[in-house]
Write a protein that binds this DNA or RNA. Structure first.
Length: 601
DNA sequence: GCCGTTTTCGGCCCGACTGTTTTCAGTCG
């Protein structure tokens, strides 16, 4: 595990332990925030911490001298004394109990202190023998909810890949559009922000008939449990359904879906609020206060009232008219900020922007440079794939089937690749309106060499070099391997550079700063693989690439016709890394792109 | 623990829902 991931995990655990020991809540928050920033930052913390550079670390916003000192301690001694001290106070197993939905620090602390609950198994014990009912504020209904939450956690507690969450959201949106009285319906939350994995699906609806929406939502097919059913908010757990088979083995997979009912005139304020992130929302509300205003899900209010008792009532209930609420754009404008796209709302520096950043959009993509056909493990012919790419308005499609070492993927032996190149060239003469390029997704072997000899590589228009095996290698070895591929003069793109699979396989952890520096030096583009199981590079890597000024290539890695629809997830990942169109080679016009590809021949 | 266009001290976002409460605490996002 990388130093930063490890440090981030430690701070997260410390934050929970502080909460359980009744520490000052602002201190708890500061630790949680530090955990998030350590995970997200593009600053390489390990060398700074090893050198004891307190000043440089504390210069990162949200990281102060206290946290910086602990990071240095971690790098130099291997642990943090505050963490060790907390471990003697709080059994580590108590933290897993905090993961049960509906149980917060107060309740978990009570269970731990009064009933000796130090694990989920202990919790099950006091549920089974009924002694949980001896705790204050604990009744039959709460007990049932806890049992359901444990079952949820054990069956499918993990986060959903965005591709699956999107299917769930689309299903509910289609259903709610049919409900009587619906004016508008949309998904919000982390799904709208394009995160690579989604904890729960948020749906927003404006309707003249809330009762109908509530009924439709809580009684539709697949609903396993209704968690809340209130005036403005409903929560359910639903089976994932058809999508589960595509996802993998877990047919019992479930996900929580929240429905928020809002008034149409406040749509923008509600959408902004429920899109989050929580941290971005906090920053916005702080900014509003500093400007003498109040921001909530009903709007942005000029709130000069200083009466303390008035302050206790939200402005909308005091008859104050919002100065902005209809659209997100209006609210950002009133806050004197540029519009921040949903994908950038993570409190990763966007609050400091004075000018808008025009991040890449789906429509900017004009070429697909990584696709498979029936020649290897794809399910499309060259012609089928070309027709789809053409229909999407692409000017170029590169056919890049697997190389010989990927035996399970039907990788092509050299003589078959030669025949395949001929087929692609022949198809290119036959098919109008799109340029077909002959390429290959060439394995980067464990030692960093490529899977075909240079003569054969030279015959290809596009070389996507990707790691497929040996994905458990140590960071140093992984860095060396990828660097060797980047330095190869005939490589255009490094495909899914880390080989991670979301929620399934961590993949490689190379030194991204070294990788990016080499990519710049050797004019190699790093891929954002758009498949929702991969999204590799991930958002924070893209941000580092963008800051350093390297090139990105966003590709579908299509095997099935439907895989072209995954492109949006790659684009959203790019946006999350603040990627602009000009840094992405797939947005270039044909002349520029083909010229760049030929420069490596 | 962090931070500063009043501040190195004294603040630190806002509202909804549930369950067990007879007026509200705990949790969530």
């Amino acid at each position: 595990m990388s130093f930063q991931k490890h440090a981030s995990d430690l701070f997260h655990t410390m934050s929970q332990m502080l909460e359980l020991t009744g520490s000052d809540r602002f201190r708890v928050n500061a630790h949680a925030k530090a955990s998030r920033i350590i995970k997200d930052t593009t600053v390489d913390l390990e060398p700074l911490a090893r050198d004891g550079d307190l000043k440089a670390i504390a210069a990162i916003e949200g990281i102060g001298k206290g946290t910086a000192a602990k990071l240095i301690e971690l790098a130099q001694t291997g642990t943090i004394s505050e963490y060790e001290a907390l471990c003697t106070k709080v059994p580590i197993g108590v933290m897993e109990v905090l993961g049960v939905q509906g149980l917060g620090p107060k309740t978990v602390k009570l269970m731990w202190e009064q009933k000796g609950v130090e694990s989920i198994d202990d919790l099950k014990r006091i549920l089974d023998d009924g002694s949980i009912l001896e705790l204050p504020r604990m009744g039959e209904k709460t007990v049932e909810n806890i049992k359901a939450s444990i079952a949820f956690l054990e069956s499918s507690g993990r986060r959903l890949p965005i591709g699956i969450a999107q299917q769930v959201a689309d299903r509910f949106i289609t259903m709610l559009k049919e409900a009587p009285g619906t004016i508008r319906v949309a998904f919000a939350g982390s799904l709208r922000r394009g995160k690579d994995s989604i904890g729960d699906v948020d749906i927003l609806i404006a309707t003249t008939d809330p009762d109908a929406a509530r009924e439709a939502f809580t009684t539709c097919d697949g609903v396993m449990q209704v968690l809340a059913k209130g005036e403005t908010k409903c929560s359910i757990r639903t089976a994932i359904g058809d999508s589960a088979s595509r996802w993998g083995k877990d047919k019992n997979a479930a996900v929580q879906v929240d429905l928020r009912m809002v008034d149409e005139p406040n749509w923008g304020a509600a959408l902004l609020y429920f899109t989050g992130s929580k941290e971005h929302g906090v920053r916005l509300r702080e900014r509003a206060i500093s400007m003498g205003m109040t921001l909530n899900e009903y709007g942005l209010f000029k709130d000069a009232s200083s009466e303390a008792d008035f302050k206790k009532m939200p402005p909308q209930t005091r008859g104050i008219e919002p100065i902005a609420c209809a659209s997100e754009e209006a609210i950002y404008l009133a806050l004197e900020m540029p519009f921040i796209p949903p994908t950038m709302r993570e409190d990763r520096g966007e609050m400091k922007l004075t000018e808008p950043i025009h991040v890449i959009e789906l429509e900017d993509i004009k070429a697909e440079l990584h696709s498979h056909t029936m020649a290897s493990d794809g399910k499309m012919t060259i012609e089928e794939s070309a027709a789809i790419a053409k229909a999407r308005g692409f000017h170029t499609l590169a056919i890049t089937d697997h190389s010989q070492s990927s035996a399970v993927a039907g990788g092509l032996k050299p003589h078959r690749l030669c025949e395949h190149i001929k087929s692609i060239r022949e198809a290119n003469t036959r098919i109008d309106g799109i340029t077909l390029l002959a390429g290959s997704e060439v394995d980067i072997l464990v030692d960093g060499t490529l899977d075909y000899d240079d003569d054969l590589l030279h015959a290809l228009d596009v070389v996507v070099a990707s790691p497929h095996a040996g994905l458990r290698a140590k960071p140093k070895q992984a860095t060396k391997r990828l660097l060797k591929a980047i330095e190869h003069p005939m490589v255009h793109i490094i495909g899914h550079p880390t080989g991670r699979l979301i929620e399934q396989r961590e993949g490689l952890s190379p030194d991204m700063n070294e990788i990016i520096a080499a990519a710049i030096e050797h004019h190699v583009a790093l891929e954002i693989n758009s498949h929702w199981m991969r999204l590799d590079l991930r958002d924070t890597h893209v941000r580092a690439v963008v800051e350093a000024g390297a090139l990105i290539s966003i590709n579908c890695d299509g095997h099935h016709p439907g895989d072209y629809d995954n492109l949006i997830f790659g684009v959203l990942t790019g946006q999350r890394g603040w990627l602009t169109a000009e840094r992405c080679i797939n947005t270039w016009d044909a002349k520029k792109l083909h010229g760049w590809l030929k420069s490596k021949r």
